[in-house]
């Protein structure tokens, strides 16, 4: 499986320069604003975005169909995308940690925030990857937007309605809760991805080329 992860990182090399530039700009902005939380959000979204990009490259090349003719199982192909996503999330969180150390953020605040951002990346992978394995990258991107848009819109609407909802959570409580959900969902997400991928008839790649 590590060969597949290696393949993804090598293939994403060109894109990586662009991502690195964007992250560098956000890091500088966050450092100047002394507010690293937005950078954390960007980095956690990047983890799944880059995994989706690697799936899109594979789709374009018809790689999956070819890879399955090699001594590689469907499980390895599926798991490698989770690994890519989590490795990028890990690198992103290292950048986030570095900036927080530089800004001397209060430890509990930092731990609460990093927990939320790790959970966000984890949840995004949990939800988006099975969808990609079933429907492909285009629909996967749409679902990703929905994952981030729906909670934001709901929050906005509920705030406007001024409902008597008195649930107050600290960052740490929210972080532990989200991480718990993200970790619990992970085996389910992987199981669904295996099933979705297993059901795929590689004719879909052929349709791309308009031949039987």
């Amino acid at each position: 499986m590590m060969s597949l992860v290696y393949k993804d990182f090598m293939n994403l090399r060109v894109q990586a320069k662009l991502y690195a530039l964007i992250i560098a700009v956000w890091t500088v902005v966050a450092g100047m604003e002394k507010n690293p939380s937005f950078l954390g959000g960007v980095l956690s979204i990047f983890s799944i975005l880059i995994a989706i990009t690697s799936c899109a490259y594979d789709e374009r090349a018809g790689w999956d169909k070819y890879a399955l003719t090699m001594p590689i199982g469907k499980r390895e192909l599926v798991l490698s995308k989770y690994v890519v996503s989590f490795l990028i999330l890990g690198v992103g969180m290292l950048v986030f940690t570095g900036l927080n150390l530089y800004l001397q953020t209060e430890p509990m605040e930092f731990l609460g925030q990093i927990g939320i951002f790790v959970a966000l990346g984890l949840l995004a992978a949990d939800i988006v990857l099975p969808i990609i394995f079933r429907f492909g990258t285009e629909k996967g991107r749409t679902f990703l937007m929905l994952i981030f848009l729906v909670p934001a819109v709901l929050g906005l609407v509920l705030g406007e309605l001024e409902l008597p909802l008195k649930v107050t959570l600290t960052e740490m409580e929210l972080s532990i809760g989200m991480l718990g959900v993200g970790i619990l969902l992970l085996p389910l997400s992987m199981w669904m991805s295996f099933r979705m991928y297993g059901r795929r008839d590689m004719r879909s790649n052929e349709n791309r080329k308009n031949s039987i």
């Binding site: 060969s3 290696y6 393949k7 060109v14 490259y57 090349a61 790689w63 070819y66 080329k209």
Partner: peptide, 26 residues
């Protein structure tokens, strides 16, 4: 297996393909 088109991801170079295949095939 050789398909009707080359199915290697487009940004890979020969050295990387060799290294990847080394890990895929015993």
């Amino acid at each position: 297996v050789v398909m009707d088109e080359c199915n290697f991801p487009e940004c890979l170079k020969l050295r990387e393909i060799g290294k990847m295949m080394q890990g895929c095939y015993k």
